[in-house]
Design a protein around this nucleic acid. Structure first.
Lengths: 227, 227
DNA sequence: TATCGTATAGTACTTTGTACGAGTCAATCC
DNA sequence: GGATTGACTCGTACAAAGTACTATACGATA
């Protein structure tokens, strides 16, 4: 139990001499499992990931997965952190001012997750994988350099985190279909005496998500800027 | 199929004349199902809600539930909106300034959900139940009265929504155990060369969640205030 | 050669959501 | 009144899923 999966593994030297069926999958490994899990999640969504299907894709037996992973939950955790790999994001020509840097980094954060919409539904779990941590570290540095007071630093970090997570989850939830949104707005119009203000502003029909995200982020950064 | 559950139901006049076992549960209804589901969720968490257990608590057969509800998912949707009932929140003596009003209402929003931590993990689904809508309506009115420009109104609403949702989900995720947070911070200390800044600020040990929420909300409202 | 650690799988058990169809009872219609 | 209908309940059954248990294979080490 203690001996099983933990840390780096899968230094393997097998297959030095040929085996009868030479056309064979490479050996299982935590990395292969995670990569395939992400593929499967992209293809079939969160309900589509079952241990059996995952094993099939890997050309392995179901129970073999459990050598590398404790529970199905672990697969989800690993997949989520994998999606958030910051180094995988193109560096771009980052602006020099802290504001631009923060915007760039937070928009990339959101975009990375929206590229894999299932990842948002995994958020409500305690995740502090290495990739998330380095993003937080990065953010902290930017704000620190920007002159945010030390006493405000943690609150500032969390507020940006909250904003980004909330925006991502919301966007991903509404991603399912534009029709639904239209339907909701219609329902709203029918009840316009109960919800007059948001009906008038067509809150639910506004589909410039990216613009709204950036605008709101702007509000928050304005509030955060040292005066 | 079309005839089944839709809209108001369960006007029932049975049991006017006594039945042999007079000590009997009241008839099933969507409302009873939702109420009991919330109780069960409070007691056993999100994994604890199974249709069988729910039926047991109701003193009913499993399949009877399906007359009032299409799928298990519906139970979740209904439970989530039930928790967000705004009228159920104590009115309190609301301050007159728009800022205080907004803070009051948004803190109540978060608190209502944290009273039922499972509700946060239900968020990543498309929910626009009546209770959520009235909260959005309320928020819109407050901001509108505060003088937020019409062109900014929707973005302002969504940014507050994002902030509150993100904060709630985050808080609920970390609710599980303080030990985990300490463990994470330790892991972080071990890797302090990789995450020096957030290690130094003890980002993960800060446990004044309410204060941080209010502070961050302050930042955002500052940024939103018409200049 | 015997042993051990790593790794793979088959089988089987349990828990779940829910389809199907039969049943009950009150209200309605002839 | 008797038949019909529609609202509602529930037992049975099935398929899909997570995973415990166990047997097996193989390379490296003693």
């Amino acid at each position: 139990m203690a001996a099983k999966n933990s840390g780096a593994r899968s230094k393997r030297t097998r297959r030095t001499s040929e085996r009868p069926p030479p056309v064979q999958e490479p050996p299982l490994s935590r990395e292969r499992i995670v990569t395939t899990a992400v593929e499967l999640l992209d293809a079939q969504g969160i309900e589509g990931l079952t241990m059996r299907r995952l094993a099939d894709r890997l050309g392995a037996g179901v129970m073999s997965l459990y050598w590398h992973v404790d529970k199905k939950e672990d697969v989800f955790d690993l997949a989520l952190d994998a999606v958030l790999d910051y180094r995988a994001s193109p560096p771009g020509n980052e602006p020099q001012d802290w504001r631009g840097e923060a915007i760039h980094m937070l928009e990339d954060w959101r975009a990375s997750m929206l590229r894999h919409p299932w990842s948002a539904s995994l958020l409500p779990r305690r995740v502090l994988g290495p990739n998330i941590l380095s993003r937080l570290e990065r953010l902290s540095q930017i704000l620190s350099r920007a002159g945010v007071a030390d006493t405000n630093l943690n609150a500032a970090i969390w507020s940006l985190w909250n904003y980004v997570m909330g925006a991502t989850i919301t966007r991903a939830s509404f991603d399912v279909s534009d029709d639904d949104r239209a339907a909701a707005q219609q329902r709203l119009t029918r009840l316009s005496e109960r919800y007059p203000t948001i009906e008038r502003s067509r809150l639910l029909l506004d589909d410039d998500w990216n613009g709204a995200f950036r605008k709101g982020l702007g509000f928050l950064l304005d509030g955060l800027s040292p005066k």
